[in-house]
Design a binder for these strands. Structure first.
Length: 691
RNA sequence: AGCGGGUUGGGAUAGCCAGGAGAUUCCGCCGGGCUCAUAACCCGGAGAUCGGUAGUUCAAAUCUACCACCCGCUACCA
């Protein structure tokens, strides 16, 4: 089956993978939501009838476990995060038509209806499996409620995967010497009746599905291993309280079973679109038409870590309940920070709230995330690169062009000059419109965004070469007429990526209505005859000091988080992190700058702990001329008693500081997170200058 | 181990599915121009044996095989 191109006659649905209601959002998460939002806005520009929905994923073991740690109910815990997400997305101009959550009534009913349909179609069977059980707490222990020894490598492992050893996925019952994470008691295995969805029946269907699926190539290729191999049936129940009850449980004897979180999570796509229909009315948007009638125009935008769920489980679930299959799955790459993966536990991330608190406009980040690399490629985030792209692409190219064109037009013509659009510019804009449409049909948000920037670039080139400031009004009129048209087209084409900034440009142009309601055809519609001088450039530049400040903040924060970490966590990162070095500094320093450092050989004379500090030590260091008191973060990483007598390298002319109320006069150099102390190989005496 | 993705001028990034002339664009660098505009903008230039080897072909960044390195997935982390 090949799909007709967007825009289609049928309503489309764009969804974003459900954020798990278990923590704060960061820039990595936002990539998926910005991509989905930009794509759905892009479809609207094409005139496609489309709804954009998502919701919070409220169930599952991690939420139950974390809620318990906090001493609140899972519902309260998850709702708190849900509300936070619901507030955060609009602040990034991620405007869902409906944003629900998996614990709301619509989803519960729909999920149970799915399961009933599977039962009715004979896609479900029961099987006895071994499940860990805590006899003292009188409770079943699914997934991460149990820990023990990995049957493959013998390492300590969680119930669902060998997280410290061989990384293998573990089935319930695999773990050796299971221990309850609730009570620390030894757990025992008991036979337990569970429900399974016959995924294996859908093998042939899925092979066909994967070949007609549109979207990113990673989504089409990654699941082949499963689909073309042997598909395991999916255990769709868990022994928990927190979740959606297995429907009609008493009749089926499946009391106190809830549905596996990956059953009810994707159903939220259906539920959320249903809620939207109910709000706006069937005649405006008919969710049933999308899901169960006619051609399917369902596009799932997800992170690339959940491809299998959307290309194996979910289509099978839909097929088993006679729903439409997705037309496309678009899996975005990850976001790295300065070349390394985000690490939320080390606070090494750019948080959504933090970004906004720094006063940056959301559209800047949207632009960065949506156009930094192809959809499925990983994107590196750094404040330097952010600055570079904002300054050179948004401020210099787009902002400057819009400003100079409109300012010139307003000053000299009170608006759009009375002249015909030249063929050349018309052709150029028409080509951009075509490219734009093609890009969206290729699910290529990046290219779509680039057409707008390319048009602005062309505008700068054009106005520069035509130099209307050297011409009289009659000669300048057609040039400026073209430029105003280019501004209008830029506003329309950039709208999906930077919706607010595009709206600003639209307003400066004095165009009627909102660019959010415009379509690509408006790119060539005549701009208003008159408009005033623009009220300023669209984009401000970010200066170097600001970037330095942001990097410093990040480093400090990571250092603080790392200082509070236990050894185990620190080892996690360093053991396998051989390639994860910080990028080399771009800026070279001159020799004089180096000479400004007064580096000396020192010998640690004494080392005491500092009360209240997790890993700071008060050192007294003999640097020949005198003995200094230096505070250093070494406690976790070195045996305090062994330190005296160790020779170290000291920065002697570092400004003095106070850490935990203790004066520190200098710095002891050490390498990496493990604070591997620098020392001398020979017998250089304390006080010797290092050069 | 299996699977997926990647390796392209100093840095980043496109092109690969549908093989075809000087390999895209941005940053940076060198030289020039302009002054309407945000010290912006425009023009020109240097810089890449497209990770390696072998093959298919009149023709390979693109297709095939093998190899190296990097990232990820393997059924509950964007």
């Amino acid at each position: 089956m090949t799909h007709e191109e967007f825009p289609t006659e049928h309503p489309a649905l764009v969804t974003c993978g459900l954020p798990y209601a278990n923590g704060d959002l960061h820039v990595g998460h936002l990539r998926t939501y910005v991509s989905g939002d930009a794509f759905s806005r892009g479809l609207r520009r094409l005139g496609q009838d489309v709804a954009f929905v998502s919701g919070s994923d409220m169930h599952g073991t991690p939420i139950a476990v974390n809620a318990e740690k906090e001493g609140v109910s899972p519902e309260e815990f998850a709702l708190r995060h849900h509300e936070q997400y619901e507030e955060t997305f609009p602040r990034f101009n991620v405007d869902f038509d409906n944003y629900g959550h998996t614990h709301d009534e619509t989803n519960v009913e729909l999920t149970q209806a799915f399961v009933r349909a599977w039962e009715a179609n004979d896609h479900v069977y029961e099987k006895e499996i071994q499940v860990a059980y805590d006899p003292d707490a009188d409770q079943w222990l699914p997934d991460r409620y149990v820990e023990g020894e990995c049957p493959y490598c013998g390492e300590h492992a969680r119930g669902d995967e060998c997280d410290e050893g061989c990384q293998r996925h573990l089935e319930p019952g695999d773990i050796v010497d299971p221990v309850s994470t609730l009570t620390g008691n030894p757990a025992e295995y008991r036979e337990r009746e569970h429900k399974f969805l016959r995924l294996s029946e859908f093998q042939e269907y899925l092979e066909g599905f994967i070949n007609r699926l549109e979207g990113t190539s990673n989504a089409q290729n990654q699941p082949r291993e499963w689909i073309e191999g042997e598909l395991q049936d999916l255990c769709i129940t868990r022994d928990m309280d927190w979740g959606i009850d297995y429907p009609d449980e008493e009749a089926n004897g499946a009391d106190d079973l809830v549905l596996y979180v990956w059953v009810d999570a994707p159903v939220e796509y259906v539920a959320s679109s249903k809620q939207y229909s109910e709000r706006v009315g069937d005649e405006t948007y008919d969710w049933e038409e999308v899901w169960a009638e006619g051609d399917s125009e369902i596009v799932h935008v997800i992170g690339r870590d959940i491809i299998q769920h959307h290309t194996v489980f979910w289509p099978s679930m839909l097929k088993a309940a006679d729903y439409n299959e997705p037309r496309a799955v678009c899996a975005t790459g990850f976001v790295n920070l300065n070349g390394e993966a985000f690490s939320t536990s080390r606070n090494r991330a750019i948080w959504a709230d933090e970004y906004l608190a720094e006063g940056f406009h959301p559209d800047l980040l949207r632009y960065y995330l949506a156009t930094a690399a192809g959809f499925e490629r990983d994107v590196n985030f750094s404040w330097e690169r952010f600055q570079e792209r904002v300054n050179t692409e948004l401020a210099d190219v787009v902002g400057n062009f819009v400003n100079r064109a409109l300012l010139f037009a307003a000053r000299n013509f009170d608006g759009t000059p009375d002249a015909e659009l030249t063929d050349e510019t018309e052709t150029r804009i028409a080509a951009a419109m075509d490219d734009y449409e093609d890009a969206l049909n290729d699910y290529d948000v990046r290219s779509a965004g680039e057409t707008a920037v390319a048009l602005a670039r062309y505008g700068n080139e054009y106005i520069q070469n035509a130099a209307p400031w050297k011409l009289d009004d009659d000669e300048a009129a057609p040039v400026i007429r073209d430029c105003v048209q280019l501004v209008k087209a830029v506003a329309v084409l950039l709208q999906p990526i930077t919706p607010e900034k595009a709206e600003d440009a639209w307003d400066q142009l004095g165009a009627e209505g909102r660019v959010a309601d415009a379509t690509v055809a408006d790119c060539l519609q005549a701009p208003p005859e008159t408009f005033p001088e623009p009220d300023g450039p669209l984009f401000e530049k970010i200066d170097d000091e600001r970037v330095a400040e942001l990097n410093e903040k990040l480093e400090t924060r990571v250092a603080e988080a790392t200082a509070g970490e236990d050894d185990e966590a620190a080892n996690d990162e360093t053991d396998d992190g051989t390639a994860a070095f910080e990028a080399l500094a771009d800026d070279r320093i001159d020799f004089g700058t180096f000479q400004d450092l007064d580096l000396r050989v020192g010998r640690i004379e004494g080392a005491d702990e500092i009360e209240g500090a997790d890993d700071l030590l008060r050192l007294s260091v003999d640097i020949g001329i005198e003995t200094r008191q230096i505070v250093a973060g070494l406690k976790q990483l070195h045996d305090v008693a062994d330190l005296p007598g160790t020779k170290v390298v000291v920065v002697a002319n570092l400004e003095q500081a106070e850490l935990f109320g203790v004066e520190s006069d200098g710095m002891v150099l050490a390498a990496g997170e493990e604070a591997d102390l620098l020392t001398t190989h020979g017998d250089a005496a304390p006080g010797t200058k290092i050069k």
